[in-house]
Design a binder for these strands. Structure first.
Lengths: 266, 266
DNA sequence: GATGCGAATTGATCTGCATCAAGGTTGCGG
DNA sequence: CCGCAACCTTGATGCAGATCAATTCGCATC
């Protein structure tokens, strides 16, 4: 296990003494929650609105926050191993996590990308069927397995929320199966870029600019290709004017429509 | 829509008058349910034990059975189209259903296989993101969308059951992503055979015999290959002694261990 | 700016699977 | 028993993407 905990940010208790950040906006968004009762740590937390915590009452938040802790995970560090037993769940607060499977001989496939404020963990199963690794610097809020499972049992809304997320991930996985099984290399790369664009800039209609959260090697593992093929297809898309590449990681898409067409989704 | 309804078997009401089948075994298995209160149609139904209905009380079963109907679907007929709006859910009672996605130019990928007593349908979403087609002759029990959603809201155990199935399907989809993205043609075919073997004969340790529920074309669409490649790899596996092929559809696996090794799962 | 190193690109060649093209098998209706 | 059609197998050839092999780029450190 290679979790990096920054001093003064590891536990909830330490964070409580920090100044609240962006509190005004949060209050606006969460008119239905009584902020006075919500733990201070949670008040500035994104996950309280989109993540698991949005299904909890203030009293439950208080209880859960006693057992949870924030962690910062550096890019490239694996924090759950394939086949490892699971003793905790977590919420992604910031960053991107890749879920991957490895074969005995080392062949690897990324089977999912998770963004904030996704919930991570496989409920009702003792061990992880894949590895989780931070693709870029990432912050998560970790809950002990026991606490979450108790909350699920007593809060139907929470199970509904996790069920919805599982269905969303299932839809994504099946979309990706079509990409892996039937698309050409160019379509695969375009599909990946379209996926990232839609996540980093959900309401963009035409133009989009973003930082790729994955290296070429990661992209290859996500698309079932090699690094070289990914690179060639990126240059091909660039020469066709569908994308512009600044710093290897920074991509501009002048016309999302053309990108989506190149991805084979017409 | 091409649903084939056999006269006398279409509605619950007609079935009520039929003799009960395998009633003794059923009673043994379901000691916790008062059979006297359970609708007669449901008493001989497999899905009452493994499927959605196992989470319902006898009173709920009675209510649901009033709105549900049995249907027989011939092999090869599509009964839900991609992008079609969903007005019902169903339980598979018998048979195999393939879920597939098609691209605009006709390329197709099977993204899931469902066996009895799986639940079919995408809760909380108005339209289907893929097509459903019977791979072999199949029987389903159809419930109106409204009825199921009402039951979910009032029965936490039902949502838990559907959540568990969604997680199971997600695990399967991700396993298949590894197969599609990183395995060779031979490993793909071996993986498919191993999958079918495990479904048709779950507790077999060494030897297994089964009927393939899919044609070569379907297998190709499931594996992201062509018919020809599937056929070649089947003969290759046969010549290597890993499988025996009787009638194109009937396969014998003398040593499951060797098959699993050929599938790349060591 | 020079140095060094991992990451990315680019080029040459190879190969696994697709594609194209015949046959062979099975089963059904006349 | 024959002929047709759907399905499967087998063979010959082509090509997309893998593999092998240099560069080149980006960026941090001195």
């Amino acid at each position: 296990m290679q979790i990096n905990s920054h001093p003064g940010e590891l536990t909830m208790i330490n964070i409580i003494s920090q100044p609240r950040i962006r509190n005004d906006t949060m209050d606006t968004l969460s008119s239905r929650i009584q902020n006075g009762d919500v733990p201070a740590v949670c008040r500035s937390c994104e996950a309280r609105h989109g993540g698991v915590c949005s299904a909890l009452t203030p009293a439950q938040l208080v209880e859960l926050s006693k057992h949870s802790s924030r962690r910062t995970i550096d890019a490239g560090t694996e924090f759950i191993g394939q086949g490892e037993s699971i003793s905790s769940y977590s919420n992604i607060l910031k960053g991107v996590v890749k879920l991957s499977k490895v074969m005995a001989d080392g062949r690897q496939q990324i089977v999912g990308l998770q963004f904030a404020p996704d919930f991570m963990g496989r409920p009702f199963l003792g061990e992880s069927r894949m590895a989780a690794e931070a693709a870029i610097d990432t912050e998560i809020c970790v809950f002990p397995r026991r606490a979450i499972e108790r909350l699920i049992a007593e809060t139907p809304g929470l199970e509904h929320l996790l069920h919805s997320q599982a269905l969303k991930e299932l839809d994504e996985a099946r979309d990706w199966m079509l990409t892996l099984g039937r698309k050409t290399a160019q379509e695969k790369v375009a599909s990946f870029l379209a996926l990232i664009a839609s996540h980093s800039d959900p309401e963009a209609e035409e133009k989009s600019m973003f930082e790729l959260p994955l290296s070429r090697a990661d992209i290859a593992d996500f698309l079932g290709l090699t690094i070289e093929t990914v690179s060639r297809q990126m240059t091909k898309l660039r020469k066709e004017g569908i994308i512009q590449i600044e710093n290897n990681r920074h991509v501009t898409v002048p016309d999302l429509g053309r990108l989506v067409a190149a991805a084979g989704n017409d």
